[in-house]
């Protein structure tokens, strides 16, 4: 009897781990773009590793803020020191869930929406993002573009810099996820 319970436990565990997807190595790019009259600022981050649970639709990601790369490294320093204060708040996390159950077919872009909580700069806010998920072989490709307001996360922009930093920042998320294999 015990053996059977154990066996079923192992099987059930296997079933669930098959439904977990994690980012491919260097498979995730997060870009933010601020388009203000005087300055266009773009930064890219390749070090975030999202996790997706196919059976429940849950999606979680943690983004190390100090890994955003700018063209001007001084901007990077100011971004970390003055705006997101990454010494205090090193990560931005998002924990969300797909709004409904979607069927993914091979090579077909499925428009999806997701609701969840974003924790950035010590402020947690519920956000809703739209995007697409495409299944290619055993990979899932996530694409999404959404807008974030720095002021919503208590990131203050001094009045004298409003010409240089946009009120809304465009965030682009591209990620390729592969089935999770327990190491």
């Amino acid at each position: 009897m015990k053996k059977i319970i154990l066996l079923s436990a192992v099987i059930s565990n296997q079933i669930f781990s098959q439904n977990l997807y994690v980012s491919k190595e260097k498979g995730t790019t997060i870009t933010f773009y601020s388009d203000a009259p005087l300055e266009k600022i773009e930064a890219k981050n390749y070090t975030a590793y999202p996790v997706f649970n196919h059976s429940t639709g849950e999606f979680q990601i943690r983004v190390p803020m100090q890994a955003f790369q700018f063209k001007n490294d001084l901007m990077k320093e100011h971004f970390n020191e003055n705006y997101v204060e990454s010494d205090k708040y090193p990560y931005c996390t998002f924990k969300g869930k797909l709004d409904s159950t979607y069927q993914f077919q091979d090579n077909k872009e499925v428009p999806v929406s997701m609701t969840g909580k974003m924790d950035l700069h010590g402020v947690t806010k519920e956000i809703k993002v739209k995007g697409t998920i495409t299944k290619i072989g055993n990979e899932l490709k996530f694409n999404s573009t959404f807008l974030l307001k720095p002021t919503d996360f208590n990131i203050k922009i001094p009045t004298m810099l409003t010409e240089k930093i946009a009120e809304e920042v465009k965030v682009t998320f591209n990620s390729t996820l592969i089935p999770y294999v327990k190491k």
Binding site: S23, T56, Q60, R62
Partner: peptide, 13 residues
């Protein structure tokens, strides 16, 4: 699993 995964998904990475 479903309870655990709510918080622990990120621990995989």
């Amino acid at each position: 699993n479903s309870v655990k995964s709510q918080d622990d998904l990120l621990s995989l990475t």
